[in-house]
Design a protein around this nucleic acid. Structure first.
Length: 233
DNA sequence: ACCCAGGGTCATA
DNA sequence: TATGACCATGGG
């Protein structure tokens, strides 16, 4: 088996995932406002728990930037308990929505140049790197790659971008893949791989990336050699 | 009972 | 720059 260089390997990885998962249609939401709200609710929280919160917010007509900006954080907190960190997230939702309104709303921000938009969003309390990247990719359709914990772990295990930090990896991926739709699909697929196969305890059976995964190769070698050591890089 | 989830902020060294 | 504490519910 050929060991591919980073740039051709990321393209091969994308090809495999697209072939395996097809179009995953992320972000799962009906409106841009809902993407923003979901992006904050899902911070270190499973999507299943977020869905319950979103349904409750919808029932209260609190699923828009406008309505949340006018809300009391204590009232919002009551609807989003299932997402965890609910006091912190309720406050974040209200403050972030206020900040966005003061900047002209999502519509006003949509005309902003990408780098400027990045720095503007990242300066809002409650919006960190990954949340900012998700907003750029899925709300504003910019060619931005979302670097999350799963992605870092998967790249580490398959043997991509060894020794690079998150910022460098994101830059390299965006150089290799420039299409917004593909970058969004890539992140979505990597989250699925992470959930199904690449948590802290790996489950390599049936993983679509096993054919290009260094970790998987070590496992196989270990089995045939009766070796104990498995390096995660 | 323990670990983790589609992170981010803040204090500390 | 790089850890650590903290936020907190729900599923495995």
């Amino acid at each position: 088996m050929i060991i591919l260089q980073n740039q051709s390997k990321i393209l091969e990885l994308y090809r495999i995932l697209e072939n395996h998962y097809g179009d995953l249609k992320w972000w799962p939401a009906e409106t841009r406002d809902e993407i923003l709200i979901g992006a904050i609710l899902t911070q270190n929280t499973s999507w299943k728990n977020v869905e319950k919160s979103i349904q409750r917010l919808k029932a209260r007509n609190l699923i828009t930037v406008n309505s949340l900006a006018k809300s009391n954080p204590a009232d919002v907190a009551e609807e989003i308990r299932s997402s965890g960190f609910y006091n912190q997230k309720a406050k974040r939702l209200v403050e972030v929505c206020k900040a966005i309104l003061s900047l002209g709303g999502l519509g006003g921000l949509s005309g902003m140049e990408t780098r400027h938009l990045e720095s503007t969003l990242i300066s809002i309390n409650g919006i960190g790197m990954e949340t900012m990247e998700s907003i750029l990719c899925y709300i504003f359709n910019r060619s931005v790659f979302v670097m999350d914990k799963y992605t870092f772990r998967i790249f580490e295990r398959v043997g991509l971008f060894k020794g690079k930090d998150r910022l460098e990896i994101r830059k390299l991926v965006e150089e290799a893949i420039k299409d917004n739709r593909k970058l969004g699909n890539l992140h979505a697929a990597l989250v699925n791989v992470g959930k199904d196969h690449c948590k802290t305890v790996p489950k390599c059976d049936g993983c679509p990336l096993s054919s290009i995964c260094m970790y998987y190769r070590q496992i196989r070698k270990g089995v045939s050699d009766h070796s104990q050591s498995v390096s995660t890089g």
